[in-house]
Computed example of a mutant assay.
Amino acid sequence: MLREYLHALLFIFIAEMGDKTQILAMMFATKYKMRQVLLGVFIGSLLNHGVAVLFGTFIGGMIPANVLQIIAGSAFIFFALWSLKEEDDEDEEESTRKLGPVLTVAAAFFIGELGDKTQLTAITLSVDAAHPFFILLGTVSGMLLTSGVGIIVGSKIGDKIPELLMKFIAYGLFLVFGSMKLYTSLPDRYVNAFTISGFVIFIVIVSAFLIKPLLEKKKKGEKSLYQKTAITLYEYMNQMKNNIENICLGEGTCGHCQGKNCIVGYTKDMIKEGIEQGAITSKIESDNHEIWAKKAFDHAKIIDSLKFTLMYLMDHYQDLQKREMTNAIRNSLEMALFEETLEFDGDIHAYLEHIKEKNPFIMEELKKGL
């Protein structure tokens, strides 16, 4: 029982490291409490994998044991190759936005895992299991563990995790286990120098085809989805908080902090609200600048912050919540630079041209990093 539980946990943990569902857990953790996210993961995974284990147990009693081993070995080879597949940035969150936090996460994970390699892994593990219930416990535990790792570790080093290394580890482990199952399960007449050579050639060719886009992306310096998500979720608001603190002139210059009577103080409050509430409701009003005393802020620091904000905004413009939060901070930085807010409709070139009319130097500085 324990062996089957640990076996299932290990395989799901391997399969999910760096997968879109782990990234999804990181995304939800920026909006909901961690316990709500993990409870949602538990419910969604239990339902999804429960269906998989029932199906695997049912077909397991109808197929001879050696055939099941061959199917399982072939499936693991397939999972190995699938591990090299480049993940797309999928957003299951939008369709479940109106549900409560736990049900939103549960629905996203249930839907996101339908037909995915994790569900197929659960089926594969359960077809010849003596204790299917422990397979289910293992797969669900694996989902909880990998989601927890994604949330905790991703917040610290997510942008530094080498995508290729994670994929190669999963690839290698699945390939080894799959090859071992096939070698021990196939009839002797099918295991010879010719078939082994053909198998190796097939694996090399398909692996090379799948690895090529990953190497090209790495060569171009593009960030992986895992890295982008880690930066998106955990670093942007905290980085902006640090940036604004650096822009602030401090009580040594201003005396007691003027709070909302200062554009920097106003922005601090906005960022604090964004971090704590997951949304920014404060809006810059066009006539508010009259109550904000002009101060000798370091414009270079403000420009750097605006550049960072625009990069984030362009990467996530289609996400309404992120767009609204980022635009609120963008407007406050514009107010500090130009004493007015500017429009941005997703066209960075039009936006830079508008800034050029205000200040050509600022436009050139922003253009360097975009």
Rank of each mutant, 00 (worst) to 15 (best):
Ala230Tyr: 00
Lys367Pro: 02
Glu113Pro: 07
Glu324Ala: 04
Ile275Cys: 03
Leu337Ala: 07
Phe168Gln: 14
Gln239Ala: 10
Phe199Asn: 09
Ala52Ile: 04
Leu10Gly: 05
Val140Ala: 02
Leu81Asp: 05
Ala122Tyr: 04
Gln69Trp: 02
Glu251Trp: 06
Pro101Phe: 15
Ala52Pro: 00
Ile111Ser: 14
Gln69Glu: 12
Pro187Leu: 08
Thr326Ile: 08
Lys117Ser: 14
Ile275Phe: 05
Lys117Pro: 15
Asn261Val: 02
Asp319Leu: 14
Pro132Lys: 08
Val37Arg: 09
Asp315Cys: 08
Thr124Gly: 06
Ile203Trp: 04
Asp116Arg: 04
Asp347Gln: 10
Tyr236Phe: 15
Glu16Val: 00
Pro213Lys: 10
Phe194Lys: 09
Lys217Cys: 05
Lys223Val: 01
Ile43Arg: 04
Lys228Met: 09
His256Ser: 13
Ser332Val: 11
Thr96Cys: 08
Gly73Ala: 03
Thr184Gly: 02
Leu145Glu: 02
Ser332Gln: 13
Leu145Asp: 03
Met363Lys: 15
Ile280Trp: 05
Ser155Asp: 11
Asp128Ile: 05
Glu245Trp: 10
Glu90Asn: 12
Lys160Ser: 11
Gln227His: 08
Arg189Asn: 15
Gly259Ser: 03
Lys241Phe: 07
His299Gln: 13
Tyr190Met: 15
Ile244Ala: 10
Asn246Cys: 04
Ser286Tyr: 10
Asn331Tyr: 07
Lys160Asp: 09
Lys358Asp: 06
Glu113Ala: 00
Ser83Glu: 06
Leu225Met: 14
Ile111Leu: 14
Gly154Arg: 08
Leu306His: 07
Gly178Asp: 04
Asn48Cys: 11
Lys283Pro: 05
Thr30Phe: 03
Tyr236Gln: 10
Lys217Met: 02
Gln119Pro: 11
Glu4Gly: 04
Pro187Cys: 12
Gly369Ser: 00
Thr229Asn: 02
Gly50Arg: 13
Phe344Lys: 01
Glu364His: 00
Lys241Gln: 11
Thr104Ile: 09
Leu99Glu: 15
Asp269Leu: 09
Leu310Phe: 10
Leu136Ile: 00
Leu137Asp: 00
Phe55Arg: 04
Phe134His: 13
Pro64Ile: 06
Asn66Phe: 07
Val204Ala: 14
Glu86His: 07
Glu245Cys: 05
Ala350Gln: 11
Ser147Trp: 04
Val53Ala: 13
Ala279Leu: 11
Ala336Leu: 14
Leu120Pro: 15
Asn243Asp: 14
Phe42Gly: 01
Leu2Pro: 01
Glu235Asp: 14
Leu225Thr: 06
Glu273Phe: 02
Ile43Gln: 02
Thr326Pro: 00
Pro101Lys: 12
Lys156Met: 12
Thr139Tyr: 03
Ile151Lys: 02
Leu136Ala: 06
Gly274Leu: 05
Gly73Cys: 10
Leu46Lys: 02
Phe297Arg: 14
Thr341Gly: 13
Met180Trp: 05
Leu68Trp: 03
Ser305Tyr: 09
Thr57Gln: 05
Ile43Gly: 00
Pro132Val: 01
Asp347Met: 03
